[in-house]
Design a protein around this nucleic acid. Structure first.
Lengths: 218, 218
DNA sequence: CAATAATTGTGATTTTTTTCACAGTGGTTT
DNA sequence: AAACCACTGTGAAAAAAATCACAATTATTG
């Protein structure tokens, strides 16, 4: 059989590298505020808790090259990550579930460098809709589809367990959502390639740490 | 040079496998409540969004064996994960930062199967300590060390940015903490092998999803 | 300005993790 | 009880990711 040379799709960044680049971006923001001008791969690694080789490889995926002898120029590195990863453009997001976690996340948008702006909230509890104090408009969940389409919302953050979470997800997808961050214990999934779903269960995170304790100390 | 056969330390579970086992445990709890009695690796995989081979390998690390032909007995699988990962034992935890994320996490302990019980709260804002309504005792941050030692607290959850986070971490470690879950954008690290630190930055999670959008849709 | 030091970029190597493939096992059906 | 089916368990292969090692490049110093 013939041999084909396998070429990794151009621009394809491995997921762990991508995750590190996101952290690196945060770090660059921080350093920029502190008026630092450059940093070495070793220092970045130390701050992020990974090896310097790793950092250099990751930055390599950006196409960016630093300067031997003096490391990476912070402003340039930041803007390169921004460009490559699309942080420059601000995206619209909505919150599903107006409970306490919902408000925590809404408050996050006050950060100096947001990459999402939260433009709508939804809850199936009509009482809550009537009593809640927010700066963004809130709607009942049955309006999800129409509001998403009207306001061009790309990301949904589900913050509260709800009996009808499957139904809600369906509405989100029908509305054309591109991503869902799900903080609910229910594990969501979609067959559609076009929707990225990230499940984050805080309880599971706790369990994971607990498990690491046990395995470590036994 | 001589060749040594490399033996993986007995009982050592790869981290991704461990993470999946934690999710699997959640699933088992859920299924148990629904009075299901057994499940196949394929079904578990579908629910968790991974392949069935993966599931079988992971369960293999427990030493547990299922039954060919009829899958895994739910109660047995759950109890095996529990034993191996130490979920049976309830551990004491504390919250650092009594803001909104702090209360979200405190509410999590009302879940039916907690593996941590939150026994103390800390905040450096004395005003907050005086006004806050909680069912657990709260203390100023300078008492961290003594309270941790007195109450045998193993896990700390840092929920709010604080100027003195490094100092707080130091106190936690001096108090003998075994694990820290840090929801602050600052990346914490420790040279000590005995302290496990997990940094979870919600903003970074958002960025990660945003990056995946971009790379996907470009 | 030559020598030295610091730092990157990357091919090669090693390690880790996932996926595959299928023999083996226990149930179930006829 | 034989034939079939639905699974598991696991060694082997493949893929992915991390680590290494070092040549090449740029700064810095005496």
């Amino acid at each position: 059989m013939m041999n084909y040379i396998k070429i990794k799709k151009k621009g394809q960044i491995p997921q762990p590298a991508l995750a590190r680049l996101c952290k690196m971006y945060n770090l660059m923001e921080e350093l920029e505020e502190k008026r630092e001008s450059s940093i070495s791969s070793q220092d970045i690694g130390k701050r992020l808790g990974v090896g310097s080789h790793n950092i250099r490889k990751d930055i390599g995926f950006l196409g960016e090259t630093g300067t031997s002898g003096s490391g990476y120029e912070i402003a340039k590195l930041k803007s390169n990550i921004e460009k490559k990863l699309g942080f420059a453009r601000q995206r619209s997001a909505c919150i599903i579930g107006l409970g306490s976690l919902g408000s925590v996340i809404m408050n996050y948008q006050d950060l100096p460098f947001p990459c999402f702006s939260i433009v709508a909230g939804f809850d199936s509890n009509i009482n809550k809709l009537e009593t809640i104090q927010t700066t963004i408009p809130v709607y009942p969940t049955y309006e999800i589809q129409s509001v998403i389409q009207r306001d061009n919302i790309e990301l949904a953050v589900i913050t509260e367990p709800d009996r009808n979470i499957e139904k809600i997800t369906e509405r989100l997808i029908e509305g054309g959502i591109k991503g869902i961050i799900n903080f609910t214990p229910v594990i969501l999934s979609s067959d559609l390639e076009s929707v990225y779903i990230r499940n984050i269960d805080i309880m599971t995170e706790f369990r994971y740490v607990s498990a690491l304790f046990t395995l470590h100390n036994q």
